[in-house]
Write a protein that binds this DNA or RNA. Structure first.
Length: 521
RNA sequence: GCGCCUCUAGCUCAAUUGGCAGAGCAGCUGACUCUUAAUCAGCGGGUUGUGGGUUCAAGUCCCACGGGGCGCACCA
């Protein structure tokens, strides 16, 4: 931006702040910069403070029923952002907006503030400025609650024009200029509160059940706990590469070994994979582990966590979420727990159009038998890394998932796709794992955790063989974790849930809407 | 990573078959003491994402690059 011209003189001084400003300018900004200069020369364009006595919200609350034309003796000093400005000659109307979107009008009459002050106001105040006004609270003849100003001050001069407040901003502009989006759009402000209320609700529910929140490493020497490609970074002090974590699981389990029996973490994970409407390279993740629980108890807890979050964020305060598109989603009651293989075989039988009866898929069904079946549903996997489990899960997603409307736990998964999960207590070849599906996407997953360090080591070795075959998402062998496991981890249920996903389920918005400042190129 | 679509004033968007780049809001000057996207009169504001090409003539057609979106693939 500053080096578009060829540098024929290497000793040329770097541009001053003013020159840099000048390279990126427009008429409207020039006008405001001149006003800033004048304010600075005459006093302050950015005072350290202004003498506010109350807030826009409080004034509105205190005088909610003021009748048109009615006046009060309540003298206030309030400040807010100028979002509308109207000038009818010797009377000016200015709409001030608080951070939460609450607006309050101020009226500047020549009779009240004097000709000189009004003239100065007209010359110096623009849309977008932070403005302080002092005066009595009245209602205008048309009934608009107002501060009838006897004094005013610029609280902070804006030098960039505000976007047009009357037409919606484009998606791209909103994502790249979130501050302006927050000024202009109630939905943007609501999202911030929804996320905060959701996080508070989750922590409250955990606290009620005696869970302890801990923070585990973001920078890891071995990446594990999930199947995903990590980001790699560099430690100068250790002179080695480090991974940004893809999951906190292996550290939370160390805490479990250490006796933190009910433990959870809400924090960021990083995965070096594609970004789309449901995936972001960095995303907030919740993981929780409950000693002496299993995948049933952790499913109960997960349902309670989500139902409490729905209650905390629902406009109606009940167990329904109203999505941005107007659809209403019911999270109440108990949620179905269906069997992965059973529901898949049901769906296959119902849609079977081949000869004879539909094949019944079991844990024993080979990759050779699954491949042609998957092909019928348009699924093609890389033969080098395809396994029984990958085929079964792909088939399930193609055949069963689209039909789910209510929140549903899908239970009991094949072993080879869940290397950190305990073998099923009664079903050979399966693990005690569930996925929770809400409206077509996977919201959370839960397990009876694998506590046997010998089997855990075998699973890691199998993963590393996959990695050797070229699977970039396979886990590394984490010797330190295995050593800790060998001291004995209590039987436990564990769960993981994407916070952004939860917000999507609560609001029906895309991930770029739920993240305040999403990564953009 | 592959395919398709898209980029025009501060913001939101027009521009017919390739034929003078426009509107609303915002801005500037002026008028107006009750406006609600105030109104009225007048005036500015553009390297049409960037670079190349075709053409008498390119916002429009072609190529490359960059930004964005959607679909596919991968994943939560």
């Amino acid at each position: 931006m500053t080096d578009q011209a060829p540098q024929d003189d290497a000793a040329e001084p770097t541009p001053t702040a003013e020159q840099q400003l000048a390279t990126e300018t427009n008429e409207q900004r020039d006008v405001r910069l001149a006003k800033r200069e004048r304010l600075v020369a005459e006093g302050e364009a950015y005072p350290v403070s202004v003498p506010v006595t109350t807030t826009i919200q409080s004034v509105r609350a205190a005088h909610a029923d003021l009748q048109p034309g009615e006046e009060t003796d309540d003298v206030v000093g309030v400040a807010g952002r100028v979002v509308h400005l109207r000038n009818t000659g010797r009377l000016c109307f200015v709409m001030l907006q608080a951070g939460d979107g609450t607006q309050l009008q101020a009226m500047l009459s020549q009779k009240e503030v004097g000709a000189e002050s009004l003239q100065r106001f007209k010359e110096l105040v623009d849309l977008g400025d932070q403005l302080f006004v002092h005066g009595r609270v009245i209602a205008s003849r048309r009934g608009e609650l107002s501060v009838f100003a006897d004094d005013w001050r610029i609280a902070a001069k804006a030098i960039r024009p505000l976007p047009n407040m009357h037409s919606p901003l484009s998606e791209e502009f909103r994502v790249r200029n979130r501050a302006l989006d927050l000024i202009q759009r109630q939905g943007a402000r609501d999202m911030v509160l929804t996320r905060a209320r959701t996080n508070a609700s989750l922590r409250r529910t955990f606290a009620e059940h005696g869970f302890v929140e801990i923070e585990t490493p973001m920078l890891q020497t071995v990446h594990g706990g999930a199947s995903a490609r990590p980001f790699v970074t560099r430690s100068n002090a250790f002179d080695r590469d480090l991974y940004l974590r893809i999951a906190p699981e292996l550290f939370l389990k160390r805490a479990l070994v250490g006796g933190i029996d009910r433990v959870f973490e809400i924090n960021r994970n990083f995965r070096n994979e594609g970004a789309d409407s449901t995936h972001s390279p960095e995303f907030a993740m919740l993981e929780a582990y409950e000693a002496y629980g299993d995948y049933h108890t952790i499913a109960d807890l997960t349902r309670e966590l989500i139902q409490n979050a729905v209650r905390a964020t629902s406009p109606t305060g009940d167990l329904t979420a109203v999505w941005a598109d107007g659809t209403v989603h019911d999270f109440s009651g108990d949620w179905d727990r269906i069997d992965l293989y059973g529901s898949l075989n049901e769906a296959l039988a119902a849609t079977w159009d081949g000869p004879g009866r539909a094949p019944v898929i079991t844990v024993e069904t080979s990759v050779a038998e699954l491949a042609p079946l998957a092909e019928r549903h348009g699924i093609a996997l890389d033969p080098a890394t395809a396994t029984h489990g990958k085929y079964v899960e792909e088939l399930w997603e193609a055949c069963v998932k689209p039909g789910l409307t209510r929140p549903t736990f899908v239970m009991d998964f094949p072993e080879d796709t869940s290397p950190l999960t305990r073998p099923h207590r009664s079903r050979l070849g399966l693990v005690e794992k569930w996925d929770l599906y809400v409206r077509g996407f996977e919201l959370a997953t839960g397990y009876s955790e694998l506590a046997d360090p010998v089997i855990q080591r075998q699973r890691f070795v199998e993963q590393s063989l996959l990695a050797a075959k070229g699977d970039p998402e396979a886990m590394q062998v984490d010797e330190d974790f295995l050593t800790t496991m060998e001291y004995g981890m209590p039987p436990a249920g564990g769960m993981g849930m994407g916070i952004d996903r939860l917000l999507m389920a609560l609001t029906g918005l895309g991930i770029r809407e739920t993240v305040l400042f999403p990564l953009v190129r």
